[in-house]
Design a protein around this nucleic acid. Structure first.
Lengths: 159, 159
DNA sequence: ATCCCTGCAAAGGGTTTGCAGACGC
DNA sequence: GCGTCTGCAAACCCTTTGCAGGGAT
């Protein structure tokens, strides 16, 4: 927990700096949203975030949530992820090394992994197409171990 | 063009078979939508598709377009792609080898590339997490050569 | 005191749904 | 003829926008 608090503190410092350098206001709502994200594990959608805040500590409007998230993504404090399910998810990104996602198409579970090979692919693309690469998004879809079991069980039922 | 027609013919055969095996109806609308997709190059969104069909040959409702696309994706005749820009795109997939996408974040251009390394990554994930991998989606974002030039030019302007 | 930011509620855009009539089987 | 599919329009959901009041600077 203390490590997380340190991370949150650092994130707040960065946020403060970036806001200042852009001449934007340091409002309590903005920091409350940052805190909420850095106190959560894993991925949040806008609704989760909004509800958590309602329950826990702060009342903000959805408009402000959207507005702030946009800033946080721009400042590289939060990553925006769009999987397949029409859902947009956010996760804290400060201090986290780059990673990609494995998603279970049955239960929606999300896990993270890291494969350095992707860098070679990006370098290759940069070379071949002359792109200035900015970032990538790699998602692998499949059935998690638990859901594989369930699939097996239910297909056995129908036989 | 004749190669494309052959592809379309094959796609229609597959579609016919799959529909039959599932006890679904072979309606003219469904085949018209398949034809439209296989007659287009690159990526289409639902609106493009709908407008093309209006102009070219067939009047279908949007509901039917959505309904049919869902089937086509399920039957592996069409691939659904979701990049970052809130847009869902579709492309024909029969006879096309697996490929991924490079997207220009400035002009929206999309190019395709193929890197076998991704298979190793998928195998690794399957092994480590015990997933039964179904598919993946890899998108690389950056500036295309033309937009790199323009960026340079416009930043020179402001100096 | 300024004017940027927030909250609210309404608008927007893409997708889904419910129902009646049409048509593949 | 039966039961599914289509078309239409309304409903939906998430996100954005416009405006007036409030708070950071």
């Amino acid at each position: 927990m203390s490590a997380d608090n340190a991370l949150l503190t650092k994130a707040m410092d960065v946020f403060r700096q970036k806001l200042e350098s852009r001449g934007l206001r340091k409002t309590p709502e903005r920091f409350a949203i940052l805190r909420e994200i850095y106190s959560s594990e894993g991925h949040l959608d806008v609704d989760n975030l909004y509800e958590h805040m309602l329950r826990n500590d702060y009342r903000v409007s959805r408009a402000t949530v959207y507005n702030t998230l946009e800033l946080l993504v721009e400042f590289d404090l939060v990553k925006k992820q769009r999987f397949d399910n029409n859902l947009t998810l956010f996760e804290k990104s400060l201090g986290y090394k780059q990673h990609d996602h494995v998603i279970c198409t049955r239960c929606g579970a999300v896990q993270e992994f890291c494969d350095p090979r992707i860098h070679h692919t990006k370098a290759m693309v940069a070379e071949i197409f002359g792109y200035a690469i900015q970032r990538h998004s790699l998602n692998i879809f499949g059935l998690c171990p638990e859901c594989r079991q369930k699939e097996k069980a239910s297909s056995a039922d129908t036989e």
